[in-house]
């Protein structure tokens, strides 16, 4: 038989500060990608599909039906070109990939380890004490 753990009472101020702390780190993580790189966390770039000054539907690789739909949406070739030539950059930086994978796996391992330790106390107290 073991004694039950008696948690301390938390003051109103302590409760308030805990909420503030949690919110502060939420906003920090929302802002971080903006502060750290100016892409807003998204890798996109424009590809050169059009040579010269004249932007044509043919140069953009659009067939007649596509062209008709673009025009129905209210775009001319020039306006559509900006959307059509914007592409994601899927080149993979192996180092970044390894770090990202390590962070995610490390996170889960850490959580599971600590949880298992805390869980044993919960079970012991729930089933072994009155």
């Amino acid at each position: 038989m073991q004694k039950r753990y008696q948690p301390p009472r938390q003051s109103g101020l302590g409760q308030f500060l805990d909420c503030v702390f949690l919110l502060a780190i939420v906003y920090a993580s929302l802002l971080a990608p903006i502060v750290l790189d100016f892409g807003g966390g998204v890798n996109k770039h424009q590809v050169d599909m059009v040579q010269g000054e004249q932007v044509t539907w043919e140069a953009l690789g659009q067939n007649e039906v596509m062209q008709a739909q673009w025009q129905k949406l209210g775009y001319d070739a020039e306006g559509a070109a900006e959307i059509i030539t914007s592409r994601f950059d899927y080149s993979i930086d192996p180092l970044a990939l390894v770090i990202t994978a390590a962070v995610i796996i490390g996170y889960f391992v850490f959580i599971l380890k600590v949880s298992a330790k805390e869980y044993r106390d919960v079970i012991r107290e729930n089933f072994d004490t009155d």
Partner: peptide
């Protein structure tokens, strides 16, 4: 792919 920085943060 494309949102790596957000993922890490």
């Amino acid at each position: 792919l494309g949102y790596g920085t957000s993922l890490i943060s």
